[in-house]
């Protein structure tokens, strides 16, 4: 039971990673592939946040009721900070991906991967 409680979040994260990876390698529509990329990214963020948890600890905001000397009182704040940066950078790169998709659609009038490869070979 304690092995389950210590690991169940990792299994959900693996499921989400597999869903994102499936969309990236199996879907033919490029918008679907970018959505899969976004799911993949969010599940990695979830992994960092999930591994920062300490049981019976409070959120990383100073509270005089919990002494600072005992670090087990506070959840690890370092992964949270790193993931704040990762979320914002992820959305910025997603914006670039969609700008590229709009340009591709204007050129080739399709967002289907295999049709695009065929069109590109013709040029």
């Amino acid at each position: 039971m304690s092995f389950f409680l210590g690991h169940y979040a990792y299994w959900f994260i693996i499921g989400l990673l597999l869903i994102g990876f499936y969309a990236i390698i199996f879907k033919r529509n490029l918008v679907k592939q970018v959505i899969g990329l976004s799911i993949f990214q969010t599940s990695i963020i979830l992994f960092w946040v999930a591994s920062a948890v300490k049981w019976n600890a409070t959120v990383p905001i100073y509270d005089p009721a919990f002494p600072l000397e005992e670090t087990a009182n506070y959840i690890n704040p370092l992964p949270h900070t790193l993931m704040l940066t990762a979320i914002v950078v992820g959305v910025a790169t997603l914006g670039v991906a969609f700008a590229l998709l709009i340009t591709i659609y204007k050129h080739y009038k399709t967002l289907d991967e295999e049709e695009l490869i065929k069109e590109m070979k013709r040029w």
Binding site: H7, I14, S51, A52, V53
Partner: peptide
């Protein structure tokens, strides 16, 4: 990919353990 991830997850320390390497 899935098999590797599941194999790797069994080696991770218990989540929430204040004595894990991360904390």
């Amino acid at each position: 990919f899935g098999a590797l991830l599941i194999y790797g997850s069994t080696g991770l320390p218990d989540r929430g353990d204040a004595n894990a390497l991360l904390h």
